[in-house]
Design a protein around this nucleic acid. Structure first.
Lengths: 226, 226
DNA sequence: AATAAAACTGACCATATGGTCAAAAACCGT
DNA sequence: ACGGTTTTTGACCATATGGTCAGTTTTATT
């Protein structure tokens, strides 16, 4: 995906099958990580390549050597976030037990919200601003993924496993409830005496969401085992 | 440093108790409205006073005559959004019937999401970026409001009217589910064949949220009358 | 009509930004 | 050691931005 470099593929077949030199890899990661943070905190327009470069500990010109334009850098960051989204999406599988499937999916999304809150914020801002970079994802991947899960939910309803509910709007509830903990973490923290949720609090929030959703569609909630 | 306006306070007390002349009012509103749109779409940093002025149909210098700095303009917009938030907050009153109170509050928040989606987006971005302008609101108004509603919910639980649930996380669910329809409207539209939700769809989304939440905390859901 | 005050705006400025480039430095196979 | 290739980066540039200001126009008051 980058410079041709003719036959030189596995020049030095080290222990790892890595395609990029070590320092290059390191720089790229530092830049991407810095970019994720700055984009999340300042938005695409507010982020400056200079600031990102400083955060990454490299001169601005170096950043532009790795990523020609700010937009290219932004797109690369977005792609990584997309991959993470996919990973969570796969946990929503077509198993027989709706309670299990939904609980697992909710947990996966909550964990992502916690572990990748920067990415979640970038994603949210991107969509709020009209998805200038990811419209195709919305129209394709997300749309077909949603359609397939809607079918599963409809089947659950038809089989009498859950109460009738509009599957789309149910999914939106799950997305919003879980992502809220990433996107609005600052607000949640402010209401929590300025402290991030502890592990226990986070678990309780997850349980609250899971219980309300599951019960909300007529599923029995298994008692929390202590 | 300052442009005159020394002792000039309230020059002419006209017949009307209006503080501002007609054209001034009109311009100010046009600028504020344009600002709301541009801030929502580009974020604070991405919005330019030039663009806002063009949207409002006035020269940039005029904008800066009304609002000295971009930040002052932004703060004015935020204040208006805050007022709207307050308005919805008041619908969460301390009535005996949790189902009524919650359903009404959810409806109020959903309506705001629909009618003031730009403001909701600005609010969301502001919080995602660490609430640089509204930290005091979070720490004061929001915190005390939340505390008072938490008390109400706890009373409902104590009275056995609803199932035990963490009130904070329940509130977060309501906020997220309703605001999602504003902040992620673009995504929702994309999944809805590019069309905004019709009145009927919106009503169904509202019903879905209300039903899931109410049933989720052990409340009977009144059948939707057709 | 005359005057003063307020409203408006074109032209301007200092600064910051994304991005370039040429030259230097590090790296490479031979 | 050598020639070529890839990395690295300080200096630079064109542009855009927030904001100013002096001069003009409009409005209000007498």
């Amino acid at each position: 995906m980058d410079s041709g470099k003719s036959g030189v593929s596995e020049s030095a077949v080290n222990c790892q099958p890595q395609k990029k030199s070590k320092p290059r890899q390191k720089n790229e990661e530092a830049i991407l990580s810095a970019a994720e943070k700055v984009f999340a905190e300042l938005g695409f327009a507010g982020a400056t390549t200079n600031l990102i470069a400083r955060h990454a500990g490299v001169p601005k010109a170096t950043l532009h050597y790795y990523f020609q334009t700010k937009e290219e850098l932004y797109r690369t960051v977005i792609k990584k976030i997309f991959a993470i989204w996919l990973q969570a999406a796969e946990t929503f599988d077509d198993c027989d037990d709706p309670a299990d499937a939904l609980a697992r999916y909710i947990r996966a999304k909550m964990n992502i919200s916690r572990e990748h809150s920067l990415g979640s914020k970038i994603w949210a801002q991107e969509i709020m601003q009209g998805a200038p970079q990811i419209q195709d994802f919305l129209d394709q991947t997300l749309k077909s993924w949603t359609a397939s899960r809607v079918k599963i939910i409809e089947r659950w309803i038809a089989e009498g496993k859950i109460d009738p509910v509009n599957p789309d709007y149910l999914l939106y509830m799950i997305w919003s409830a879980t992502q809220h903990h990433a996107d609005f973490a600052h607000q949640i923290n402010s209401l929590n005496d300025g402290q991030p949720l502890s592990d226990e609090q986070f678990e309780e929030a997850l349980q609250t969401i899971t219980n309300v959703i599951l019960r909300g569609i007529g599923l029995p909630v298994k008692p929390v085992d202590e």
